[in-house]
């Protein structure tokens, strides 16, 4: 394991970045250095230092504590977004790819329509129908992410379904359900895994984008996107306010991208 990490710098740094951030999220669940909503006039725009390592915002709230909380909600929302998107995408994509025909045509045309809008725009539409709040944002992003997963899974299932082992399973008298889920699905896991990783990153960015626009996690709960949008007005008085939440997003996405890259590379070496 250690040896593998040393040979694969992508995997190494990906694991380190993601590990650190995950640790911060987990610690943030039980303890933050300061209460995330505690204001203090004396600490208004306090520069990063020993008391506040990331500094303070315009209300004197500790930015590090708020980053911890915001990172947590970003993580959870991105996770559930990808979960909704990939599970529905796998269901739709495998049915379309396996059965083909009219079902495939119908579902894929709907998919094309959804696909033609940028997912963030689609999410915006759904949020405006459902209302703001983190549950609705997760739902909206999840739905917006279905088409890309469905498309990837469909083409992979189509490819696998043409192979003899599927024919042979059918000849064994296996049901369609069994063929799709027991025989084919394990074979598309590598592709699915990397698209889940990429999907997670897109979800992180989309969530940050939505909360930047003010329709994600609602105040007083902290969110990275909203912190960025507030920090914009104080870019010159308190640059750390923008830098640290921004850096956190960059690290999160970079870490996950490296992890995904490293894992595909590791998979290639193994096979």
């Amino acid at each position: 394991m250690i040896k593998k990490l040393r040979q694969n710098p992508d995997l190494l740094f990906g694991t380190i970045f993601t590990g650190i951030l995950l640790l911060i999220v987990l610690v943030g669940l039980i303890h933050t250095p300061y209460p995330t909503t505690q204001m203090s006039a004396a600490d208004k725009f306090a520069a990063p230092g020993l008391m506040h390592i990331f500094g303070c915002d315009q209300y004197g709230r500790d930015i590090f504590s708020r980053v911890m909380e915001g990172l947590g909600s970003t993580f959870v929302i991105a996770l559930f977004t990808v979960l909704i998107g990939s599970v529905s995408g796998v269901l739709i994509g495998s049915l379309c790819g396996y059965f083909g025909g009219l079902l495939d045509d119908a579902l894929m045309r709907v998919n094309d329509v959804l696909f033609s809008f940028p997912s963030i725009l689609l999410a915006l539409v759904i949020v405006s129908l459902l209302g703001t709040g983190s549950v609705n944002v997760t739902l909206a992003l999840g739905i917006a992410f279905v088409p890309s997963f469905a498309r990837i899974v469909r083409s992979e299932v189509k490819k696998q379904a043409a192979l003899d082992y599927v024919q042979s399973a059918r000849l064994m008298g296996a049901s369609h359900f069994r063929i799709i889920f027991v025989h084919i699905l394990p074979n598309i896991l590598p592709v699915l895994a990397s698209s889940v990783m990429i999907g997670f990153n897109n979800a992180v960015l989309a969530e940050a984008g939505l909360s930047y626009l003010g329709i994600g996690v609602q105040p007083p709960r902290a969110s990275l996107g909203r912190m960025l949008s507030e920090a914009q007005s104080f870019l010159f008085t308190a640059p750390w306010y923008a830098i640290f939440p921004g850096l956190t997003i960059v690290l999160l996405v970079l870490g996950f991208a490296l992890l995904a890259e490293g894992m595909t590379e590791g998979g290639r070496d193994a096979s």
Partner: peptide, 24 residues
């Protein structure tokens, strides 16, 4: 038909490379 397939009628294919599921 499914009752027959795999039980009474079986088949082997040309390509043993693809006739087996690589993940099983």
């Amino acid at each position: 038909l499914r009752e027959l397939q795999g039980d009474e009628i079986c088949m082997i294919f040309q390509e043993p490379m693809t006739a087996l599921n690589p993940t099983m």
